[in-house]
């Protein structure tokens, strides 16, 4: 697969090929549900230090692709590579081991639990007899909140998630993922239910993450949001990758036209 892939409709953008092997590549991914082809020979890649927008209308295949990358759905065909080396992402755990973390807006965190307990849910640092290392958890929770995404308004890791705004909760989920060594974040409609101010925060966080070495896949219907933060775009329609383009080589109007024309 070349750096910027085009499969069906539009030519590839080849003017600015990357110097490095992509961080993650999915090649020739196909998935059918009965007679319905959800994905047909799709190539998709995530480069180092970038935010890539995964765009398309409803039914385009974005969700299926995200589920496959998350290890929730097994593709019928296709292969995956991390830094050029084949990787297995056939389960959620394996996908996470490959550095991928999906952050769904509505199920990212347990709302009735504190930030600290959420950060460590399922990954508690354990001492003798399965007791949690509370001191270490607190210290690291504070570090996580400060290190990866500075979240205004969070005064204590003891705050319950339900006391946070949508944007703050997203930021905590992102911080948790980054701390646990995930360097590819799949953000599925992270801004769809947020206020304008909250949306700005999440978009800013994505940019900060990309610059600090964590690449983001931004799945959204909102082309304006995507165009503001993404370095590259992959547009899907009818289960195919119909265009991949660098931001410098396309425009908001062109992206809109491509989506509308399929």
């Amino acid at each position: 697969m070349t750096a910027a892939t085009t499969t069906a409709a539009a030519p590839a953008t080849t003017a600015t090929a990357p110097a490095r092997t992509p961080l993650f590549e999915a090649r020739g991914i196909s998935k059918a549900y009965g007679h319905v082809n959800a994905l047909m020979n799709v190539d998709f890649e995530v480069r180092h230090n970038e935010v890539v927008g995964l765009l398309g209308d409803n039914g385009a295949g974005k969700s299926t692709l995200i589920k496959i990358l998350s290890g929730v759905v097994i593709p019928d065909r296709g292969s995956f590579f991390r830094n050029g080396q084949p990787v297995d992402i056939s389960s959620r755990r394996k996908s996470e081991q490959a550095g991928i973390q999906t952050i769904y807006q509505d199920i990212a965190l347990v709302r009735s639990m504190s930030i600290m307990r959420n950060i460590y849910a399922g990954r508690e640092p354990l001492g003798p007899l399965g007791f949690m290392k509370m001191g270490e958890m607190r210290r690291t929770a504070v570090e996580i909140l400060d290190k990866y995404v500075r979240i205004a308004g969070i005064t204590s890791p003891d705050l319950l998630v339900e006391e946070l705004s949508g944007g703050q909760a997203q930021a905590v989920a992102i911080a948790r993922a980054v701390h646990f060594k995930r360097d590819i974040l799949l953000l599925d409609e992270p801004t769809s239910a947020l206020s304008v101010r909250e949306t700005e925060k999440v978009l800013a966080i994505m940019r900060e993450l990309a610059e600090s070495g964590v690449s983001c896949v931004f799945v959204t219907h909102n082309l304006y949001h995507a165009f503001r933060v993404c370095d590259r775009f992959t547009i899907m329609a009818h289960g195919q990758n119909v265009k991949t383009a660098l931001k410098a080589d396309t425009s908001l109007n062109e992206l809109t036209d491509i989506i509308m024309s399929h």
Partner: peptide, 9 residues
């Protein structure tokens, strides 16, 4: 939140 719990592993 069983879904979020499952999602957290």
């Amino acid at each position: 939140d069983p879904k979020a719990a499952q999602f957290a592993g």
